[in-house]
């Protein structure tokens, strides 16, 4: 059959399809795994040594917290795909979801590398890499994301507020995390800052547009702000792991970025002529919230869907 596989030069332009079996690194921008950064080990080539004096479990858990925020938030934003008000926004929202997913992969891989015992054991013969073991084989109570990230999607005003609040908070965190003594976290933060600045600007533009657009858009925007605001204070709570990570010079204490984040938010509110929400903080369960693994009802449903195929094929290769 070899002669059927051959791509004849005179027909080259017409036969992109037949090039599939030609082992040509230049074909269609090279092979899928190498050229687009989706290789099996997201940390390949990065210095993963744990900085001196840093507790491995603290570093791992801290990376897991940030990684779960990104993973869960990415999943929610990706749910907008093919549902946005216009093509440009569909593309922008998938882009945000992709950026967050990229951050999640690095952070989960970091968590696994720092402390292998964080990775759930899989049946023998499972080829799932650690990032997937963490994403697809943990239960909801083992996820350490803030509850803000898991809320079920609402309308486009809700998406706007969600992306704005999340990116303003996360950007303030990553700006400081660039100084992390951990090479992986500092690299993730350095790249993430650029991405998050775009997410924030995109959402801030829509925030102002919706606030100043029509009566309906303004009403919807303020409703969305009031619905998400109760989860805003939780973003700045300091969990003991975060305190320890900050103390060790690898992490950022969320409480330390509140002022910077709220200053940015105030600018957006002023431009939009919107008052900050007065909605009260949402309490936890017995004092526990997302960072403790205490979530709302939607997370386990999200995970049931997200993990369904991976769990149905324990030894599957993907």
């Amino acid at each position: 059959m070899a002669d059927h596989i051959h791509t004849s030069p005179e027909d080259e332009h017409d036969s992109a399809y037949s090039g599939l079996l030609v082992n040509d690194a230049h074909w269609a921008f090279g092979t899928a795994t190498e050229s687009i950064g989706f290789g099996e080990d997201p940390l390949a080539g990065v210095d993963t040594t744990i900085p001196e004096g840093v507790d491995a479990v603290t570093l791992s858990t801290y990376a897991l917290m940030l990684g779960d925020d990104s993973l869960v938030m990415s999943h929610r934003i990706a749910e907008w795909t093919s549902n946005a008000p216009d093509l440009e926004d569909d593309i922008a929202l998938s882009n945000i979801a992709l950026d967050l997913l990229g951050q999640a992969r690095l952070l989960l891989a970091r968590a696994a590398k720092a402390d292998e015992s964080a990775v759930p054991p899989l049946p023998e013969g499972s080829p799932a890499p650690p990032e997937d073991a963490l994403a697809f084989f943990r239960e909801a109570h083992e996820f350490r994301n803030v509850r803000f990230a898991e809320v079920v999607n609402g309308d486009f005003a809700e998406a706007t507020v969600r992306v704005l609040l999340f990116s303003v908070w996360r950007l303030a965190t990553f700006e400081k995390l660039r100084e992390s003594r951990d090479h992986v976290l500092s690299a993730v933060a350095a790249k993430g800052v650029k991405e998050l600045a775009y997410h924030r600007d995109y959402a801030a533009r829509w925030f102002v547009t919706l606030a100043r657009g029509t009566d309906e858009s303004r009403t919807r925007l303020i409703t969305a702000l009031d619905s998400l605001w109760p989860l805003w204070p939780e973003l700045f709570d300091t969990h003991p792991v975060e305190a320890a990570a900050a103390e060790a010079g690898v992490g950022v204490d969320p409480a330390s970025v509140r002022e910077a984040a709220e200053a940015v938010l105030d600018q957006v509110f002023t431009a939009a002529d919107v008052e900050p929400s007065q909605a009260p903080r949402r309490s936890g369960v017995l004092g526990k919230t997302g960072r403790d693994g205490m979530h709302g009802e939607p997370l386990s449903r999200m995970l049931a869907e997200m993990q369904s195929v991976a769990r149905a094929h324990l030894r599957g290769q993907w």
Partner: peptide, 12 residues
């Protein structure tokens, strides 16, 4: 998208 069985496949 919401059920992609690995993070790499989800990104792709």
């Amino acid at each position: 998208i919401s059920r992609a069985p690995s993070l790499r496949r989800k990104a792709i």
